[in-house]
């Protein structure tokens, strides 16, 4: 199903703007992630698509050419996976998964067959007749996905589906979820505050900030060509370099850097993996801490600017805390971007 959103905005009764007018287009079978910090409006947008919140007047939500803006949630034929899963504790796993099919008033035999099919696909065979309370977090998450998918919804909406799990399980289920969604071939919108999750699961990512989409694109595009300093910091943890811009040069405490272009009033950012320890480099710094992370070292450097600068250093050895080092940053690795304007 293609999903078209036009002029979706939400103002809460108190007058706070949760979402500024937003347009969005999601292709059939595409998995889109809404990524942003808490309070950026991503959940509000998802809940408006679901029909759980009403947008401000003037909005239109179109499912495959059908305007569903005025439809209640129970008529929209969506599937939703909630952060807390919202599984019914009064029903078994099978009862939960079959509930949506029961609401469609399908014959009992067909319900049983389709429930069995989804149970199989989500590898819930051993737990089909268990009570919800007897399941682990990861199993509950799979039941929630199976329940949302069983009625064959037009679009699947996932609201932070992994955030209730502990870190180790989250990584494993992230890949599993990405695979399952591809198998289902469903159009899906996935809300998260975790950039790794968005990158791993989504075809395209919409980065949201302060009630608006800051940039939308493939994970690679967002990483390589961020449109704003917010996107650069949120996707790939770019660090702002605080210094004085003079034409195509940036004057820092620890030296002068050449910029790829003239940066008038813009912000310069760099990612830790692009900061290199280089005896011929133009910057001087003092090593504060060194953390060994297996494939590389993470080094915190002082003296380049007022705050710390981080560098990822691969190699067999690393400098020690207290060492004076020289650094270089290739001009093409510097991101020169518009500053964020506070709303």
């Amino acid at each position: 199903m293609t999903l078209t959103l036009r002029n979706i905005a939400k103002t809460f009764p108190g007058g706070t703007t949760a979402l500024r007018p937003t347009d969005l287009e999601i292709a059939k079978g595409e998995i889109l992630s809404l990524l942003g910090p808490s309070g950026c409006g991503k959940s509000t947008l998802l809940r408006i698509i679901a029909g759980l919140e009403t947008p401000d007047p003037g909005a239109s939500i179109i499912f495959d050419g059908e305007d569903v803006t005025q439809q209640s949630v129970e008529r929209r034929k969506i599937g939703m996976v909630f952060q807390s899963y919202a599984l019914f504790p009064n029903m078994s796993v099978r009862g939960n998964i079959g509930y949506g099919l029961k609401m469609q008033k399908l014959p009992k035999a067909e319900i049983a067959a389709r429930v069995a099919e989804v149970i199989d696909l989500c590898r819930l065979g051993h737990y089909a007749d268990r009570a919800i309370t007897a399941l682990s977090g990861g199993q509950r998450q799979r039941v929630a996905l199976a329940r949302a998918m069983a009625p064959r919804p037009r679009v699947l909406l996932l609201d932070e589906p992994l955030s209730a799990l502990d870190a180790a399980l989250r990584g494993q289920l992230r890949d599993e979820l990405a695979l399952l969604l591809r198998q289902f071939g469903i159009t899906a919108i996935f809300v998260t505050h975790d950039q790794d999750e968005a990158m791993a699961i989504a075809d395209r990512v919409a980065v949201m900030s302060q009630g608006a989409v800051a940039q939308i694109g493939t994970p690679e595009a967002l990483y390589r060509n961020p449109a704003t300093s917010f996107v650069a910091r949120f996707v790939g943890d770019a660090m702002p370099l605080e210094g004085q811009v003079e034409g195509a040069h940036l004057q820092l405490l620890g030296g002068i850097l050449r910029l790829p272009k003239v940066a008038g009033g813009q912000q310069v950012l760099v990612r830790a993996e692009d900061v290199r320890i280089d005896p011929q480099g133009p910057l001087t710094a003092r090593v504060e801490t060194v953390t060994f992370l297996g494939t590389h070292y993470r080094i915190s450097l002082a003296g380049v600017m007022t705050g710390p600068l981080f560098a990822l250093h691969s190699g067999l050895s690393a400098p020690r805390p207290g060492d004076e080092v020289r650094l270089s940053i290739p001009p093409e690795a510097l991101l020169v971007l518009p500053r964020e304007v506070a709303a």
Binding site: E74, G100, A148
Partner: peptide, 12 residues
């Protein structure tokens, strides 16, 4: 949330 879950599955 439980009710929202049921509503998303088509329950009035």
């Amino acid at each position: 949330t439980l009710e929202e879950g049921a509503a998303s599955l088509g329950a009035g």
